[in-house]
Simulated assay, not measured.
Amino acid sequence: MAAVHPKFRAAAVQAAPVFLDLDASIEKAISLIAEAASNGAQLVAFGETWLPGYPWQIWLDSPAWAMQFTQRYHDNSLVYGSPEAERLMQAAKKHSIMVVMGLSEKRGGSLYMGQWVIDQEGRTVGQRRKLKPTFVERAVFGEGDGTDLMVWTTSLGRIGALCCWEHLQPLSKYAMYAQDEQVHIAAWPSFSIYRGAANALGAEVNLAATRTYSVEGQCFVLAPCSVVSKEMVDVLCGEDPVKRKLLLQGGGFSAVLGPDGRLLHDPLPEDEEGIVYADINLGEISLAKATADPAGHYSRPDVTRLLLDRTAHDRVVITGQQAPICGEVEPGGAAQNGNLYESVIRSNAT
């Protein structure tokens, strides 16, 4: 019997959040989720740290100046298992659509650049953290570990996700390719800072990285790319003419690419909010893989191999019988792991 390959419509969001306002941003996200579902999408993806917005302040001035936004950013970052997180899960279930949300994840006193995959029943498929925050991002966010380089089996195929410049990390990419990834979420914040400067932060380089991923991995790529709104510029730049030249409105370049690197839709203008859609047929992957499967017939394991360490790097490991610990239990942790104490102190989301 011939294999049956899922066919579905996918959606990549190109929009700004309500900056530094978690509740309002979730409300906007739910509206976008409903819009995508009403247009027939079964999968919708959001950009990097869409909740509560990418912290552009770290690129605009000194760390001391950016500290004025720190408490507000922490207070509006998402905690798994919270009522705010539950609203997103219920929206996915209500509209029968898989959601991949980019977020600033708050865990205790630390933040992480997270991606959360929620299925059509409102259940968590996976939660991951960016392995290495890029450059000044390390002033805000902690790191993920080997458990985050994961591809999940779902009703829509084998789905994986990376953030931003993780797409410039060859070994991390290869680890994903080797897991037979079929649909990849490449989450980007916006390409609207340092325009014209000699750097690799612009659209040209990063769109090339997205396209390279689709061709190297022979997979479909959803690349949601957020927009910098006028309100965001006003909050972060005020009337400072220098800052207003550094951070511009727009920067949205959301895309959905096929396994041969083709753009599968008409693009939106970079300063326009909306959603881009593409119809995906996973059967087309076979055509690309037949030519060059980098982790299969086109590999040379006798010459080069990759070691992927999936060890969870817990900050605290408790052994033996312990008294109950007061603290936060990760969503589903006790039920899934059968160990309340471990679920309380684990630093990495299940």
Rank of each mutant, 00 (worst) to 15 (best):
H184V: 13
L88P: 02
A208N: 14
Q68W: 10
F69N: 02
E86P: 00
A187P: 09
L103H: 06
D240V: 08
Y277H: 05
M67K: 15
A295S: 15
A295P: 07
L171S: 15
N281Q: 11
T350W: 00
M150H: 14
A12K: 02
L131P: 01
V235D: 00
E84L: 14
D180M: 09
P55W: 05
P301Q: 10
A198Y: 11
Q90M: 11
A92C: 09
Y73A: 02
L78F: 08
F141R: 03
A36W: 07
Y80H: 12
W50C: 02
G196V: 09
W116G: 00
P267W: 05
K230P: 01
A3T: 09
N281Y: 12
E27H: 10
F191T: 07
K289H: 08
F220K: 04
R123P: 01
K230E: 15
T350E: 07
P133G: 07
A255S: 14
G144T: 10
G40P: 13
V44P: 05
V125C: 11
S77D: 07
L287T: 14
V235N: 00
P267G: 09
Q322I: 06
T124G: 01
V79Y: 05
G114T: 05
Y112Q: 05
Q169G: 06
M150W: 11
W165Q: 08
L263D: 01
A200K: 14
S38Y: 04
T304P: 00
S110P: 00
S254H: 02
S104N: 12
L32F: 09
I280V: 15
K243S: 01
G283N: 11
I33W: 04
L282T: 08
G261E: 02
A37L: 05
P294Y: 03
D145I: 08
L248C: 12
Q14D: 05
V205E: 15
G47V: 13
K289Q: 11
F135T: 14
A200Q: 15
L201G: 04
S110R: 15
E86R: 14
M150L: 14
M89N: 07
T124N: 12
P269L: 02
E328H: 12
C225W: 08
E270M: 10
C225K: 04
L306Y: 04
Q42C: 10
R310K: 15
V18Y: 01
Q169V: 13
G338Q: 06
R138Q: 15
P331R: 03
R129E: 04
A11M: 03
A64D: 13
N348E: 11
V227L: 11
A295E: 04
C326A: 13
H313D: 13
K130D: 10
Q321I: 13
A175C: 15
E204V: 06
M1F: 08
L246R: 10
T212Y: 10
A34D: 12
